[in-house]
Design a protein around this nucleic acid. Structure first.
Lengths: 121, 121, 121, 121
DNA sequence: GTGGTCTAGACCACC
DNA sequence: GTGGTCTAGACCACA
């Protein structure tokens, strides 16, 4: 996995985990990879993964069973959806429209890209 | 001007200048405020403004006439548009569509918000 | 290390680092001294070293691993050679020949000095 | 005329004038262009040209007749040659050989370029 | 430990 | 007046 510059790696890892939960690959109560395994997998310092997991734990998206590892919270999916939807509608979308106005982008152009995107998937 | 946390002030100043160029307030070959004036105006350290201007100069959006100040490049507007449009279509938009898919957001919902947004303006 | 006047210290530090890479003392993927260590070593302000490293990073001669430090780029040596050779053949050498023609210097004179130089080494 | 970055414009203008004297285009006791004309010609602030002329005057390469303008000194050509030759042999040439050694440039390469250069002229 | 950013203030060369 | 560089020192996030 490659990381974006300008954004903390631990945040990107947390988002990565959230994506898995959102997509349904990791379900409620399911064990997620150990800090160590994840660190090896992502080629990152274990401390950094630990920080991601702590972050997700604070958001009540995952929880810890001592000695066993981290697990998706019963309502983890809902929590993620809640956080991300709020951020989407209150931050991302307004920013997007502001940028569209500033760059004088035609909605038509976006529509084309959107179709392209949909078809590609 | 107030600055967002989480993003370097010098980047925000650079964006601020770009916005002025985009909006047509500062045209090609026009002098932009001196480092010192801008610093006083934005209540930041001159060094910070200097970093912004260096950044914009590297992007060929502004250029320097020695002893006279910084000026909008002849094709400054195009350069800004180019950079921002590329980022919009290659990064922001794909991220948006990925997020929409992941959060299972109905386009209808966005349409509603969009109308809201348009009406508010 | 002593610095020439008339040339920015941060440029001289960057050249200094380049020289180390050129000479093979610092190889690809090898960590170079931290900003702080270098600053103490050269008796300059850490900010000044930071500027040098940013400059070298822009030239893709070194790169940063977040939290770990700066490292010589895989093709750092090639990048340095490339930049310096280009400058040598496209700027320095033409200037030299122009100067030779203008000053009506006999190549014999240079040959003599050159032998001198060779012998000195 | 275009100016190199990193070098003061007034120095470059002084060199420009020296080149004319060296090449024989401007001979001893001959009037050189007025500050004003030169400024218009080079698209530079007259103050900057003035500074160049003062610089050359300090080196006794040109002199001033009040109300008439600046003139090439009787021994102007010799003065220029003296300064430039010293700089050439004591600074430029040693630097060049150091660079050649560092970049491991074969003298053969230079020879080739040199022939090229000679032929071009 | 690492870099990244920022402030405060200074000095300088140049235009 | 303009930018360009540098010092001194601070605080912070990140690994």
């Amino acid at each position: 996995m490659e990381f974006r510059e300008n954004e903390a790696i631990y945040i990107q890892i947390a988002d990565h985990v959230s994506d898995y939960i959102l997509s349904g690959k990791w379900e409620a109560e399911q064990k997620i990879p150990s800090v160590r395994d994840m660190a090896v997998d992502l080629q990152v310092n274990p401390n950094t993964v630990m920080r991601s997991y702590e972050h997700l734990q604070k958001l009540e998206i995952i929880y810890n069973k001592r000695g066993l590892g981290f697990f998706v919270a019963p309502d983890g999916l809902e929590k993620v959806l809640e956080n991300r939807k709020a951020h989407f509608f209150e931050v991302k979308l307004p920013e997007l429209f502001k940028e569209i106005a500033l760059l004088r982008i035609e909605l038509k152009e976006i529509q084309e890209k959107y179709n392209l995107f949909i078809n590609k998937k």
